[in-house]
């Protein structure tokens, strides 16, 4: 089968990249790692006329961890670099774990966290944790820059809130609140390296053993990574007992709308949401308690 043909540019500034996207129109596609884009072209799901490679833009791969401003992950920061970053592992351990649980070594050496978000797969391994932690995306575009909460960024499978000519240049995570704990659990057929069939990310905040805030995000069980707000509500203002965790996990499962596909059946996904939510909430509670006792 002859390869689909396209042209290629590698701008050295964000402005040049935006200009290339505006001039090229909707058949011009941004590429960071290419691990989703090239597969989609090979599988004839996309027919771009031009690819704009972001990896030659200096500084776009920056990762910064700051007590006041939180975590910033640049658009071309590799999954492998996020997974191995000491500051992220220390202060945002679940962000590092989710990046390290994405795909395999080779893909993590090419692919990026922001690319995983922009591909907007409902199963994106990095989305649940980042959404749970209240992340925002910084967007550059022809009419200037803007930011938006990550949980408004996803619009459907493969569809984001980006307009023509816009590029996500970074994802930012606020500093974790005092007393918070996070966790991400996922399941897939080949260990953790293929697309997740189910993923659950959470952040909870404890004051003593009282839950004062909770976010639970389920991946791969709705058209977008999905917040399960009823389950979150059940936890807030209560003592986070094992029983309550089980009840909230069951509610989270009932809120999702999984489908049957090649990776798992809907009924399996429903069951596993509850199981993974129990694990994630239990782990997050443990992290929150550990942090409060080590103060």
């Amino acid at each position: 089968m002859p390869a689909a043909q396209f042209d290629y540019i590698a701008p050295t500034t964000v402005d040049e990249a935006v200009a290339a996207l505006v001039n090229g129109g909707k058949d011009t596609r941004v590429m960071a790692g290419g691990t989703d884009l090239i597969v989609k072209i090979r599988h004839r799901m996309l027919f771009p006329t031009c690819i704009v490679n972001l990896k030659r833009i200096a500084g776009l791969d920056a990762i910064s961890v700051d007590k006041k401003n939180g975590l910033t992950i640049g658009a071309t920061a590799l999954l492998a670099d996020v997974a191995a970053n000491k500051g992220i592992r220390r202060h945002y351990p679940t962000v590092a774990e989710a990046a390290g649980a994405t795909a395999n070594v080779q893909v993590r050496n090419m692919g990026t966290v922001v690319g995983n978000l922009c591909n907007a797969s409902p199963s994106a391994d990095n989305a649940p944790t980042l959404m749970a932690m209240g992340a925002t995306v910084d967007i550059a575009g022809p009419s200037g820059g803007r930011s938006m909460p990550l949980d408004q960024f996803f619009q459907g499978p493969g569809v984001t809130a980006l307009e023509t000519g816009e590029i996500v240049i970074a994802v930012r995570v606020p500093p974790p609140p005092a007393g918070s704990g996070t966790a991400y659990h996922s399941l897939s057929q080949r260990g953790k390296l293929d697309c997740s069939a189910v993923g659950v990310g959470t952040m909870i905040v404890l004051n003593d053993d009282q839950c004062t805030d909770a976010r639970i995000i389920v991946g791969a069980c709705a058209p977008v990574p999905m917040r399960t707000r009823a389950a979150e509500k059940m936890l807030i203002g209560k003592r986070m007992t094992d029983t309550l965790i089980r009840q909230a996990a069951q509610t989270a499962s009932e809120e999702t709308s999984p489908i049957t596909d090649v990776r798992a059946s809907a009924s399996y996904r429903w069951k596993m949401v509850a199981v993974l939510a129990i694990r994630a909430l239990t782990d997050a509670r443990q992290m929150a308690l550990r942090k409060s006792t080590s103060k």
Binding site: G34, V39, R42, N53, N104
Partner: peptide
């Protein structure tokens, strides 16, 4: 596989292992 799943095409670029089937030569 040509889609980054099997690793048969692995090469090392600037010290990092990558799938050569998903890497554009022009890059």
């Amino acid at each position: 596989c040509g889609s980054g799943d099997c690793g048969a095409c692995t090469v090392i670029v600037d010290g990092k292992s990558v799938s050569s089937c998903l890497t554009l030569a022009v890059e």
